[in-house]
Each structure stands twice: as C-alpha cells, then as structure tokens.
C-alpha cells in the first residue's frame, strides 16, 4: 500500500462514486428481476383433491341434494290443502264481512266460532304436516349419517385390506407367463393379532401356479397388518388378487 502510494502520489481510481451508484443500481435491477421472475413461477397450481371411496358414497352425494328439496315440497303440500280449506271460509266469510260493519252483533258471533274452529283445524293440520316433515327429514338425516358412517367404515376397511394386499403382494413370487389378468379370491381367517389362521381359496384364477404363489405368499406374510382402528377388525376377510395390479 505504502509503495503504491509513493508510486502514485495522487491517483485515486476515477469515478468511484459513479461506479458505486451504478453497481447499486445494477443490483437493484437484478434483485427486481429475481423477485418478479420467481414470483411468476410461485403461483401454485390449483390442486383438486378427489377421494375415491369404494362402496356406497355414490348414492350419498345425490342424497344431500335430495334432502334440501324435501323442505320445499311440504310448504307446497300444505298450500294445496290450504286453498281447499280457505275457499270454504272465504266463500262463507266474504258475504259476511260486508254486512259485518252494518249489523254488528248477531251473525259475526257464530261466524267467529266457525272461523276459530277452522283455524284450529288448519293449525293442527299444518302442525301435523310439519311434524311429519320434520320426522321425514330427521329420518333422512339419520339415513345419511348412517350411510356416511358406513362409507367411512367401508373406506377404512378398504384401506386396511389394501395394506394387507400390498404386504401379501410383496411376497408373491410371480410365476412366469401368467396370461391375462385373472382374479383369484381367497378367504382368510385372522386372529386379532393379525396372524393368519387359515386360508381358503374360494375362486381360482385358472392358473394353478399363480394360485399356489398367492397361497404361499399369504402364509408367508403371516402377521398381517392390523387396522388403524381396532374396531374395524374382522375375523374373515375376502381378498382378491390379480397378477398384474
């Protein structure tokens, strides 16, 4: 440094401030480009989740749509009745209201009784209809909940059997040349610990080598995975196998 200072007594690097500002500007531009460029990519794609359930859910989705609809019918159902009742009153009432203002005392009294009775009747009818409707709705709701529960249970069961199948499939030593994708069905009896008690073939795939391979694989993977929820456990399971899953 000292030698340099001697060699160049007064020679500062030219345009120091200008270079500093330009460098700062350059980095500002760079950071700006980086921010904009990366934010463009960062918009995450809209993910759509689809849950595939195995059994009853298909009826379930339409059900909720049916459920909101029933409420409308009841009012309609009531209304048709009302018009039938009402006209009666209306017809009988209409002549009276006009005379009402003039002869005040006599006819209205009887009429009021009648009207009152009619109204009570109507209210009762309406109440009955509403009750029925509420009951129906409740029943539907219960059915829906039951269905949902059944569906959840079925799907949990399906995941459990899937896990079992996956474990067994890992142990299957595929014989060569299994033509097509035939299905072999086995009936497996389990202990709650997951141990296999017995294996029975209920349907052959038509390929004895494949049947044997699956049979051996089931026995080999004997502590089978337990279900996540112990309540789901079933002693007998029907397992279906395809050579080319």
């Amino acid at each position: 440094m000292a030698a340099e200072a001697l060699a160049f007594p007064q020679r500062p690097e030219p345009a120091l401030l200008r270079s500093f500002i330009l460098a700062a500007l350059m980095h500002g531009v760079l950071v700006g480009i980086l921010l904009v460029g990366v934010r463009f990519q960062s918009r995450p794609p809209l993910t759509v989740e689809v849950e595939l359930w195995e059994q009853p859910p298909p009826p379930a989705p339409p059900q909720p749509e049916v459920k909101p609809e029933p409420p409308p019918p009841p009012p309609k159902a009531v209304e048709p009745e009302k018009p039938v009742v009402k006209p009666d009153i209306a017809v009988q009432k209409k002549p009276e209201p006009k005379p009402k203002p003039k002869p005040k005392a006599e006819p209205p009294k009887r009429d009021r009784d009648f009207e009152k009775r009619m109204r009570e009747q109507l209210a009762m009818e309406q109440q009955a209809v509403q009750q029925q409707d509420a009951e129906r709705r409740e029943r539907e709701l219960k059915a829906l909940i039951a269905k949902r529960e059944a569906a959840a249970r079925a799907s949990a069961l399906a995941t459990w059997t899937d896990r079992i199948r996956a474990k067994i499939r890992g142990n299957i030593i595929l014989p060569r040349d299994v033509p097509g994708n035939p299905e072999a069905v086995f009936d497996v009896a389990l202990l709650p610990t997951g141990e296999v008690l017995s294996v029975k073939q209920t349907r052959s795939s038509g390929n004895p080598a494949y049947d044997d391979a699956v049979y051996r694989a089931i026995l080999k993977s004997t502590p089978l995975p337990k279900p996540d929820n112990p309540a789901l456990f079933e002693r007998r399971l029907e397992l279906r196998f395809h050579p080319h899953d």
Partner: peptide
C-alpha cells in the same frame, strides 16, 4: 456472495471508466 458481487460490479464500472479514459 452478494458483497463480492457488489464489489465486482463496482470494479467493473470503475475499470470501464478508467480504461475508456
């Protein structure tokens, strides 16, 4: 790296001016 980049850009501009001069 940011620091180094800044310094190198500064020297790039400085050298640019001084060589041109």
């Amino acid at each position: 790296l940011l620091l180094v980049s800044f310094m190198s850009w500064m020297f790039i501009f400085q050298k640019w001016f001084s060589i041109r001069r």
